[in-house]
């Protein structure tokens, strides 16, 4: 149900594409994210691209970490 892997799209033709991660290549279907481009990072589940991975927002999680750091420290001292 939930096992989905970050991979990179290296070739597209029609609704089919080749995704690669750690040197392993897999043919996938891109119907669920049809505007995907080669070079983009995507989430693959059961042979389908189910979403793009947005590296920009990934940095946002760094802020969460910083927030946790600050908050937790405050929390600990409180």
């Amino acid at each position: 149900m939930c096992l989905a892997i970050p991979m990179k799209i290296i070739k597209i033709n029609g609704i089919r594409a080749i995704a690669e991660n750690r040197g392993v290549e897999q043919e996938v279907n891109i119907s669920l994210v049809p505007d995907i481009q080669t070079g983009e990072k995507v989430l693959i589940h059961a042979g389908f691209v189910i979403e793009r991975i947005d590296e920009e927002t990934a940095r946002e999680i760094e802020e969460i970490w910083d927030e946790i750091n600050a908050d937790v420290l405050r929390g600990q001292q409180a």
Binding site: L3, I5, N21, R22, G23, V24, Q26, I44
Partner: peptide
């Protein structure tokens, strides 16, 4: 790396 890659895909 390839072994990790296959293991991640097939769970």
């Amino acid at each position: 790396e390839e072994v990790k890659g296959v293991c991640e895909i097939l769970g």
